[in-house]
Design a protein around this nucleic acid. Structure first.
Lengths: 232, 232
DNA sequence: CGCAGCCTTGACAAATGTCAACAAACGTGG
DNA sequence: CCACGTTTGTTGACATTTGTCAAGGCTGCG
């Protein structure tokens, strides 16, 4: 593993404060692997063997039922995924596939749980991380139940605007068909939703988004911290 | 506080394994209160002062946005709610109101966090509880994104069937309008969804549900552990 | 250059919500 | 215990939202 990778992982909130010796224990059992795009890394319902950390590239978390499929989240560097399954030693609730070529670190679940049992600082970090994850999914549920698809798109664009440093021009970070699935709609519906936002000053050409009338878009989207602020 | 209440709380997974002395610390600062129905106990976006435990009655967790409102969950005895906000010392993401007359125990957030900091066993229990909560909301999201409203109702009925000890006759545990909101639809739509399930052997009269053709209902609903099993 | 996958568009269908009317159930005060 | 009024549930007619299918254009990559 590259020293730079180690440093980046160590700087994650989850690992930042734990004892050196325990961090080293985690790393000793760790694998690092490069995956091509579109590889299914984990599969729903299978036993949970590793805590995954995306170091480079990007990973889609998705779920299937009865022939349908939906994107639950996209994981970007540097962050972990499926922590809850690791801690509970339960089967995965979601599948994951690489979207781009990706570098992934695999920490054996057993090691994570073992360190969790002896390092209280780490245990605290796990709690914080899980609480954060929980709140984030609650926000997703509120978004789905309280908003129409056009409203979800409008608020998504405003979150991206903010993430891009309040830039009124930015790139979509995923293909439209994946964005559609993430937002809980079909690709066709997304196309039309984009058009429906034109009167509020939104232009999208390819993956380039331009917000020409921020005030109007905000007035339409009515963003609220308790759904749209990822740090809340 | 009645000894019987204390005993019940102590028997919750969250408190079962912690040191006596710390459990007593928690109880020392605790209030117990009886609330009439329809009292708003906590309000979204407000600072989190207490961990709540429902001892008797029932509490609805709900959320509002832009004049709309949705039921996120119903909490029944004996269980806690809004643990994540307490641990993160963050504002509530949901509001809560009593549905029936309810007995609620309030543990000051500060005390919970203080005990969390000194009692590692308790910290572990918190992690487990949070991981469970997280997985449960992920299931909710999958349910919403992958299923139609009729499918959600069908699977809800099957979960209740199971909860009632595989009884083909049971009572709905909440008013239909709340059930509708919980399942992400309007009351009118729920009425029609119930009718739509008649061909699969479901009769509902008042709050009494009868499943006369379990096999057909299962074939239609296609339940799966990774969405419908609360213990998974 | 040509194929494959993505995106868009139109026409249509299905799912879901809204509104209004009414019926049924519930709770309260007499 | 009944009468009344309020709330909840149901139904029909209709509107809106969302999904489906099919066709065609665009784009990127071998």
């Amino acid at each position: 593993m590259k020293p730079i990778d180690i440093q980046e992982i160590r700087s994650l909130a989850l690992f930042r404060e734990m004892a050196d010796i325990n961090f080293e224990t985690l790393l000793r059992g760790a694998y690092i692997q490069n995956f091509p795009p579109q590889i299914e890394l984990i599969t729903e319902d299978e036993p949970c063997d590793f805590l995954h950390i995306v170091v480079e590239g990007s990973v889609e978390l998705f779920s299937r039922w009865n022939g349908r499929e939906t994107v639950m989240a996209t994981v970007r560097p540097v962050s972990t995924f499926i922590l809850a399954a690791v801690i509970k030693d339960s089967p995965y609730l979601m599948s994951a596939r690489t979207h781009e070529k990706s570098r992934i670190i695999l920490l054996p679940s057993k090691d994570v749980r073992a360190v969790f049992d002896i390092d209280n600082i780490f245990a605290r970090s796990v709690v914080n991380e899980l609480a954060q994850c929980y709140r984030s999914v609650v926000k997703t549920t509120k978004n789905l139940k309280l908003r129409t698809s056009i409203e979800r798109l409008a608020n998504y664009l405003l979150r991206q605007y903010k993430f891009a440093g309040n830039a009124v021009e930015f790139e979509l970070k995923m293909e439209k068909r994946l964005l559609a699935s993430y937002l809980g709609m079909t690709p066709e519906n997304l196309s039309r939703a984009i058009k429906a936002l034109q009167p509020y000053g939104v232009q999208v050409s390819g993956s380039r988004v331009t917000i020409s009338n921020l005030a109007d878009l905000i007035a339409f989207a009515k963003p609220t911290t308790s759904i749209d602020d990822p740090t809340y």
